[in-house]
Write a protein that binds this DNA or RNA. Structure first.
Lengths: 240, 240
DNA sequence: CGGATAGTTGACTTGATTCAAGCAGTGTGG
DNA sequence: CCACACTGCTTGAATCAAGTCAACTATCCG
C-alpha cells in the first residue's frame, strides 16, 4: 500500500525505543497499528505522578524511558516503595478494579499510556498481546520473589550492592544504546531516602554503606546522584 | 444426554473443590472436559517434592488441597522460602524454560497436574484460560509486593501476626467448607523453622514471639502444630 | 524406657536504627 | 559577591531488636 491516502496519523510505535522488548513486541504490523491508535505518548518530569494508589484503575502504560517508582502508603501514613519500573516494563493493573499502588516518575520519563478500558478490550481481542503480558507478568513475579529474599535475608551491604548491580543492568539498554556493555557509570534516579525505602533501610545506613564501599574502592561517588562501579566483581561478591 | 455411551472417563473437575476459584473457573463445559483429559489428580504426602528448582519446567499444577511451599537455594546452600501456595493457587512456570523455584508439600496435599507442554498448548488455544491465568498472576504479583513490604519494614511481632492472619484467611475456604467464617483454630502446616524461613527471622525469634503472644492472651498454643486465635482484633492491630 | 527431633528459654553479641550534630551544594536577597 | 538559609547528605554516639550460642524441656516413636 502506498500513501494515496492523505497524511496517515504518525505511528509512534515504529520508532519506539522499546518496540522489541515491551509487550507489543510480537504483534503483527496491523495490530501494532491498531494499538498505536488507542495509545498515546506522554512525557513526565521527575517527581510527576502517573497513577494514584486506590484510584479506579483508569490507565495502564508502558515505560519507554526513565525510571518509575511503585509505592504504597502504610497504615501510619509513611510511604513504602514496592518496586521500580524500567524501560519496557508494564505499569498499572489491567482487569482490576483499582490501582494497587501509586506510580511516580523518579527521573524525567516517557511512557506510552492507554485507557484501561481500551487496553483491556484490545487485549481480549488480541490473545497475542495478552499472552505477552502474561509472560511479562510471570517474569515480574519471579523477579519480585527474588527481591523478597533480598529484603528478608540480606544485610545492608548485600542489599545496596544488589541494588546497584540491578540498577546498572536495567538502566543499561536505555542509556547505552550507543556504547556497548553494561554501564559502570550510573546516574542515580533516586535520592538516598528513596534508596532506603526500596531496600527497607534507613537513610543513614544507606549513606554509611555508600561511604564504606567508596573507602574500600568498590565504587566512586563523583556526585550525589552519580555512582561509578570500580570493581564489579567484588561488588557482585558482596551482593551474593 | 444420558449415558448410552459405555463408561465415560471420570471427570474430576466436576467435583473439584476449587472448581469455582481456580483458573479453570470460567471455562465452558466442553473446555473443562478437554482440560480434564490432559490433567490428572495427584496426592502428595507432607514433605513430598513436586517440582525441583532449575528443572526443565516439566509440570504445572493447581493446588486443590493442602499447603505448598515455594523455595529456592541461596548461594551458600541454605534454603529460602519464597512463598506459600494454597488451594486454588497455580504452581509452576508456563511458557518458561526452567522452574524458578522448588515446590514441596508442607501438609498432605492434592494437586491437579499438567504436562507443561500440554498446558501451554491448551492455554494458547483457549484464551479464556490464559486470561484467567493472567488475572491470577497479576493478583499474585500484587500479593507478593505487599509481602515485600512486610519483609522489608516490619518487626518480628508484626511479621508473625500478619502471617497467622493470612494463614487463617487462606486456609479458611478449604477447612471450613462445613462451618462458616474464618477459622480461629489453625492447624499449622509449617514447623517453627519453616515459619522463620518464610518471615526472614530465626527460629528462636519466632518461638519467642509465639510465647509472648500466648502470654498476652492473643493466641493459644494447644500443641506445636496448632494455634488458636483468641483475640483477632488485637492481633490485627499488631500486624498493622 | 531411651534416643532423637523439635521447640523453648536465657545470656550475650551485633548490626541497624535513632538521635543529634555537622557538612556541602544550591539558591536568594542585600 | 558574599552572607544566609535551605535541603540533602554524612558522620558519630547511644540504644535496641534480632541474631547467636548454649542449655534445657517437651514430644514423638521405636
Amino acid at each position: 500500500m502506498d500513501s494515496t491516502e492523505s497524511e496517515p496519523p504518525v505511528n509512534f510505535c515504529q520508532a519506539c525505543a522499546v518496540r522489541n522488548r515491551a509487550i507489543c513486541a510480537d504483534l503483527l504490523p496491523d495490530e501494532i497499528d491498531l494499538l498505536n491508535r488507542i495509545g498515546r505518548r506522554r512525557r513526565l518530569t521527575a517527581g510527576e505522578q502517573l497513577l494514584w494508589e486506590g484510584d479506579d484503575a483508569i490507565l495502564v502504560a508502558n515505560v519507554i524511558e526513565g525510571v518509575m517508582k511503585l509505592s504504597t502508603q502504610t497504615a501510619d501514613g509513611r510511604e513504602q516503595i514496592l518496586g521500580l519500573a524500567y524501560p519496557s516494563d508494564f505499569l498499572g493493573r489491567p482487569f482490576g478494579q483499582s490501582t494497587p499502588y501509586g506510580v511516580e516518575a523518579l527521573s524525567d520519563a516517557q511512557v506510552c499510556v492507554f485507557q484501561r478500558a481500551d487496553f483491556d478490550r484490545f487485549a481480549r481481542e488480541h490473545p497475542r498481546l495478552e499472552h505477552k503480558l502474561l509472560e511479562r507478568t510471570l517474569t515480574e513475579l519471579d523477579r519480585t520473589r527474588k527481591w523478597m529474599l533480598l529484603l528478608g535475608r540480606m544485610n545492608a551491604e548485600q542489599k545496596l550492592a544488589a541494588f546497584l548491580l540491578e540498577l546498572s543492568e536495567r538502566l543499561a539498554p536505555a542509556t547505552c544504546s550507543i556504547e556497548a556493555g553494561p554501564s559502570d557509570e550510573l546516574e542515580l534516579p533516586l535520592s538516598r531516602q528513596q534508596i532506603a525505602d526500596v531496600l527497607g533501610l534507613t537513610i543513614e545506613t544507606v549513606s554509611r554503606q555508600f561511604s564504606r564501599m567508596k573507602s574500600e574502592g568498590l565504587i566512586d561517588l563523583p556526585s550525589r546522584r552519580e555512582v561509578a562501579i570500580l570493581q564489579r566483581e567484588r561488588l557482585e561478591d558482596r551482593a551474593a
